[in-house]
Amino acid sequence: MSAMQFPFDRSQYMKSPPLRMIAYAVIAMLLSVVHIVFLRFISVSSVTPDLLLILTVWIAIVEGQFTGMVAGFLCGLLFDIVSAQVPGTNALVKTLAGFIAGYFYRESDAMALIGSARFLLITALAATVDSFTYNFFYVKPMQTSFWMFFVKYGIATTLYTTVAAVFPMLVVNRRKDP
């Protein structure tokens, strides 16, 4: 199938920042719905992978730290609204995740980084910060030990999110190959 048959030029779309932002927004909305509606099917002891965090890390690596933070904030806020949580909780943690992931921004070889195992390490680091901060605010009003809760749910979520990040890594990796 030739490129002319697509409703828009894919290469042009990849080069156009506004179109990319729109695509990120649409993907973020789809992922938040997927998270709420479908992720229960693959939850293990109430632990699910954080798909919006993976998107935030992707954006931070591709677009840079500034865009990553803003994207993280908006993704988090979107998830707060969709999941009926206290608005600002996920916005804060995903802003921090975007900030951390943004340190690994490489303008020239972003896709190479995503297609490698380093993407998993960055996702794991961002997910750890995300889980740590989120559980800190989540556990604070409860009569529960923060460290016990973090070890039980935070690390499990981090691991599950890192495992889920293997799929975008493999997709990008396959595209890189001739």
Binding site: Q65, F66, M69, V70, F73, G76, L77, D80, V86, P87, G88, T89, A91, L92, T95, L96, F99, G102, F137
Partner: peptide, 16 residues
């Protein structure tokens, strides 16, 4: 980047 981080964190706390 740091100013944006601080702004977004403050905004998040304000929302919370």
């Amino acid at each position: 980047n740091y100013i944006t981080l601080c702004t977004l964190v403050v905004l998040s706390f304000a929302l919370m």
